[in-house]
């Protein structure tokens, strides 16, 4: 038991159990659906998950600091629409410029959120509930309820979701899905190894302690919001290339799925704990559920009810199980210490 405690932490047990649930669910659907283990299933799941994954990376950073960003869906919608409009009006825009436009506009929207939360000292839920409505209203006004159509978009953008990075057997790893995966890995590294990443945890665990310790809490939270906006902008670009036809209601309700992925992935809604890998597993679990329920020809209207139940189960199991596990681990550490002290005294 001591060995186990030294090897893994409670958080890792949570991620492993999430992985186990994913495997069980895949086995279950595999026995229910004909021809489930195929490249096509993988393709569908990976392309449905990638937008949520990219946006949820930003959301995770915000949630780690004990804040929340509900406005991501409006930011994704706005950047997708803006990028689509620009690219359909000027055919010769280079891909890099379009991506840069989407990312920087997203960052601008995130900056507004961050300034209000970090420097205006307004609770995050109030700010982002407000900007969720403001950004969407601004988009509808800006777009005059005109749609961006697939035929107006340049070929490179329409074909982008079908670009393949590399293939393993029959499985094609698509460029955009690969990009989403790389972003998750990069930001996991940021959380683990950069001072900025560690400070996100510090602020989320105890904002007061972090401030007293001299951390520039405001700047760190502001940057988290800007990064969340920038990643939402990137998500908007991916949304544009994947969906093609973008209207002013684009990505409405996406924030629920993003927060679902973050919470199911084990990121504490009160900040201070959680990893990008866990979030990715959460997003994949939700993606598998969504796509498989469609394949099982279960009424699509069941999707939301099942999603909501999963989020609640995740939150409940976190609150009920994780604290006990942490206690167990802490108690084990104390007992070990006592045993060591006794051994020293004997000598």
């Amino acid at each position: 038991m001591q060995k186990v405690r030294q090897l893994i932490r409670p958080e890792q047990i949570r991620e492993l159990s999430l992985l186990l649930i994913i495997i069980l669910i895949v086995i279950f659907f595999g026995s229910q659906i004909e021809n489930y283990y195929s490249a096509r299933t993988f393709q569908r799941i990976s392309s449905s998950v990638m937008i949520i994954m990219v946006v949820a990376v930003g959301e995770t950073m915000v949630v780690l600091t004990r804040n929340i960003d509900l406005s991501v869906s409006s930011m994704v919608g706005f950047t997708a629409y803006l990028a689509g409009q620009q690219v359909s009006q000027n055919d010769n825009l280079s891909p890099a410029v379009v991506v840069l436009l989407a990312v920087s506009f997203g960052a601008l929207l995130g900056l507004i959120n961050g300034l209000l939360v970090a420097y205006g000292k307004i609770p995050a839920i109030v700010v982002t509930l407000g900007t969720l409505a403001i950004y969407r209203g601004a988009l509808v006004e800006y777009g005059h309820s005109k749609n961006i159509l697939v035929r107006d978009l340049p070929d490179w953008l329409v074909n982008l979701p079908r670009e393949t990075l590399f293939s393993v057997g029959e499985l094609d790893i698509r460029l955009l899905a690969g990009l989403a995966f790389i972003i998750v890995i990069i930001f996991q590294m940021v959380l683990l190894f950069l001072p900025y990443g560690r400070r996100l945890y510090a602020i989320g665990s105890s904002p007061d302690a972090a401030r007293i310790a001299g951390l520039p809490a405001r700047r760190i939270v502001l940057l988290a919001y800007v990064l969340c906006g920038a990643l939402s902008g990137l998500g908007g670009f991916i949304y544009l290339s994947r969906i093609g036809t973008v209207g002013t209601t684009a990505a409405q309700g996406l924030h629920m799925q993003v927060i679902a992925a973050v919470v199911v992935g084990g990121v504490n809604i009160f900040g201070g704990s959680g990893t990008m890998i866990g979030m990715m597993l959460g997003a994949i679990l939700m993606g598998i559920l969504e796509q498989s329920l469609i394949r099982m020809q279960i009424n699509e209207f069941w999707k939301d009810a099942i999603f909501g139940m999963f989020i609640l189960l995740a939150v409940a199991s976190d609150a009920l199980m994780m604290n006990r596990l942490r206690d167990l681990w802490a108690r084990g550490a104390i007992q070990m210490r006592i045993a060591q002290d006794a051994a020293v005294q004997k000598e």
Partner: peptide
């Protein structure tokens, strides 16, 4: 968290 989840569920 609870009411966010249950709002998705009830709407579902």
């Amino acid at each position: 968290a609870v009411t966010l989840a249950s709002s998705i569920m009830f709407r579902g």
